[in-house]
Design a protein around this nucleic acid. Structure first.
Length: 309
RNA sequence: GCCGGGGUAGCUCAGUCGGUAGAGCAGGGGACUGAAAAUCCCCGUGUCGGCAGUUCAACUCUGUCCCCCGGCA
């Protein structure tokens, strides 16, 4: 495996990652790869803010809108797909430009993931069922006996992480702490992380505006059609912000006005979580979204230094 | 005008048989290794409508005034 250099654009939702990616692609000759967990779904292009057809025409785009709504995304497998696509671009002489807002996925790719095998879905179902029946506190108590270090890190009310830890132990006979210790950073990979800076206060009006634009662009109709094709509100694709709200308008008689308020609140809360995540990552170089020249210059220097070494 | 019911956190409200108050939501901060647009944790001083009275002590009792919501005129 030969070395690869990745340009990664991160930032909260609505900060202008798509536009910055296109600018980079134009200037440097690149191809865009999505690493956003919700923009992968087909039929939800508007609510998940996937690049439009015009935007995609600017340069090659990959991993957008290609999964059915009822298909879950797995971080490990998805990171593999991103890398495959990035290598394909590189082999075509294109600079891979990774764009997305899912911090965990970028981390999985750049820092590596513990080499945990896929877990038998039946084991997982069993653990989840027990958690639902007995409560997460009971299972957390069980985890304390198995893997006290990990149990101490997570809260007894956090069913998702408790179930994951238990399913991994049940399936592999090793604790999550043991597996995490075997994580290694992928070799031959260089990544430049560029963050588009934004503070919540100035982002909020833009997020509100974007919701209105999505509605104008047919978000309601899009979700209605998607639901006809997949009448399951719990489907993974419908966890994208905006979908529960629009489905509530359609199925529960929620007023559109209330839906817009709920939608904005969820979006804001999500943006805040993203900021918390990315602010902690000190490998990120922050740029104002308008600072296209600065972003391009930094990316170019990075690629040149890669070529030189 | 009269009769009820209210005025307590940004909002909706609870509560104190008199010892200066607490929930939900909103808001703020944080965590994060295969569900991550997910999941989860932490953070509550506010003239308890105004004024006066009783009392060691009033948000709580009394009087009075103001405002809101019903009903009757």
């Amino acid at each position: 495996m030969t070395d690869i250099s990745l340009l990664c654009l991160v930032g909260a939702t609505g900060t202008g990652k798509t536009a910055a990616a296109l600018a980079l692609a134009r200037e440097l000759g690149g191809g865009v790869v999505n690493f956003d967990s919700r923009q992968v779904y087909a039929g939800l292009g508007v609510v998940t803010a996937q690049p439009t057809a015009e935007e995609r025409a600017v340069c090659p785009h990959a991993l957008y809108g290609y999964l059915p709504i009822n298909t879950p995304v797995r971080a490990g497998a998805f990171a593999g797909e991103i890398m495959d696509q990035a290598r394909a671009y590189r082999d075509q002489g294109l600079a891979p430009i990774l764009v997305g807002g899912t911090g965990l996925y970028l981390k999985s790719l750049v820092d590596g993931l513990a080499p945990i095998p896929d877990i038998d879905p039946q084991i997982r179902e069993e653990v989840v069922r027990e958690c639902r029946d007995q409560g997460s506190q009971v299972l957390h108590g069980r985890l304390q006996l198995i893997d006290p270090d990990y149990a101490a890190k997570i809260h007894p009310n956090d069913p998702q992480r408790i179930c994951r830890a238990l399913e991994v132990f049940t399936a592999t006979g090793q604790t999550l702490t043991w597996w995490h210790g075997r994580t290694c950073r992928p070799a031959g990979l260089r990544a430049l992380k560029i963050g588009l800076s934004a503070d919540l206060a100035s982002l909020t009006p833009r997020l509100a505006r974007r919701i209105d634009l999505m509605l104008e662009a047919g978000a309601r109709e899009e979700v209605r059609l998607a639901y006809e094709g997949c009448p399951d509100r719990m489907a993974p694709g419908f966890s994208g912000i905006g979908c529960p709200e629009l489905l509530a308008v359609m199925l529960d008689g929620l007023s559109l006005d209330q839906a817009r308020r709920d939608w904005l609140r969820s979006t804001r809360a999500y943006a805040k979580r993203q900021l918390t995540w990315f602010n902690k990552d000190n490998e990120i170089f922050w740029h104002h979204p308008e600072d296209v020249d600065g972003i391009v210059t930094r990316a170019r220097q990075f690629l040149e230094s890669a070529a030189a070494s």
